[in-house]
Every structure is written in structure tokens, then in C-alpha cells.
Simulated scan of single mutants.
Amino acid sequence: MAALDVVKKYYDCFNQKDWNGMLALVSPDIRHEPNQGEARIGLEKFTAFVHHMDESYDETLTDMVFFTEPAGQRVAVEFVVNGVYKKAEEGLPAATNQTYIVPAAAFLEVANDQITRVTTYYNLPHWIKAVSE
């Protein structure tokens, strides 16, 4: 399967909240580089992150635009995060089911039909402002 197809399937699973389907597409040695904080290495840590995010946020991604590079191993995707902040995170505002819309992007690497790296970027101060108003 082409890297672009793997990544599109990954995000389709995300939007369907099919966490098992999404996790089946990542490598056991996945490297997750979040917008804030240290990288998570390995499927166990990434799975814990996905479940934690599901408890705290309800998100759907829209306006997705995918970009690939000539070797076909890296995919970039720009999207809009449409979310509900369900459960407060330490150091962030209180959660009262506030809605938010923020632009974001991710960069992914694929090898042997598995995602080996996910790096995500968004504007955290913009998100904080959205859930604080």
C-alpha cells in the first residue's frame, strides 16, 4: 500500500473514532513527536496517548489536504481540528465541553505499510484562547 493510502486510512479511522483500526496502522516502534513535550517511542506509549486524548477531547478533522514527496515515504497533511474539550489537562484551562476550531498539520513517515513517525503542530496559545472565551 502506498504511504499516502496508509495515512489517509489512519485519518479515516481517527475521524470514525476507530482507535483499534488506527493503531493497527502504526509500527510497534512508532515515534510520536507532539506539539508540546517529549517524543513518545513505541506502540504502548502511543496507545496510552490515544486513549488519554479520547477521554479529554472529542475531535474531528476536516479540510484535509495531503502532500507527498517523491520517494513516497513521507506524507504531510494540513487540516482543521473541530473539537470539544471534555476533561481538563494539567496546566490547561478547566474543561466544560467548550468547542474549538484550530488549524493544524502533521508530518508522517511510512515504512512497510506502517506509520513509523507522527509529528503534529498547532498553535497552543490559539487553542487556549478558544477554550477560555
Rank of each mutant, 00 (worst) to 15 (best):
G83T: 14
A48N: 08
Y85S: 05
K87R: 07
L23M: 09
Q114C: 05
A48P: 05
E44V: 15
Y100G: 12
L92E: 13
L25S: 08
S27R: 02
V84T: 15
D63T: 13
E78V: 12
A94K: 02
Y121E: 12
D5L: 04
R40D: 00
Y10Q: 09
H51P: 11
V75M: 02
V84E: 10
T96S: 09
M1I: 01
A130C: 12
A71S: 08
G21H: 03
L43D: 03
E59I: 15
F46M: 06
L25Q: 03
L92P: 01
K45V: 12
N20W: 01
T62D: 10
P70F: 06
E69S: 04
A48D: 11
Y85V: 06
P103V: 08
L124Y: 10
E69T: 04
N123F: 00
P93K: 01
K86D: 10
M64L: 12
N112S: 05
F14C: 11
Y10P: 09
I101R: 15
L108Q: 10
A105T: 11
I128D: 10
F67C: 08
A2S: 13
M1N: 04
G21W: 01
P28I: 03
F67V: 06
N35E: 14
L43Q: 04
T47V: 12
H126A: 14
V84K: 12
E133M: 09
A111E: 02
V26I: 15
E109P: 00
K8G: 07
K87G: 06
V118W: 00
I115W: 03
G21F: 03
E90D: 13
T99H: 06
N15T: 09
Q73T: 11
M1C: 02
P93M: 06
D18Y: 01
Y11S: 08
K86F: 14
L61W: 14
Y10D: 10
L61Q: 14
P70K: 07
E90Q: 15
Y10F: 15
E133S: 11
K8M: 05
K86W: 07
L92S: 08
N20F: 01
W127H: 12
R31K: 01
D29W: 00
Y57A: 08
R40G: 03
A76Y: 02
P93N: 07
R74W: 01
D12S: 13
T60Q: 15
N97L: 02
S132D: 05
Y121G: 08
G42L: 02
L4V: 12
Y100D: 09
A130N: 09
A24T: 06
T116N: 00
N112I: 03
F14D: 13
D63Q: 13
K86Q: 11
A39E: 03
S56F: 04
F67R: 09
A104D: 13
A88F: 05
Y121M: 07
H32L: 11
T99M: 07
P103Y: 03
V118E: 02
F46R: 03
V131K: 04
L61V: 13
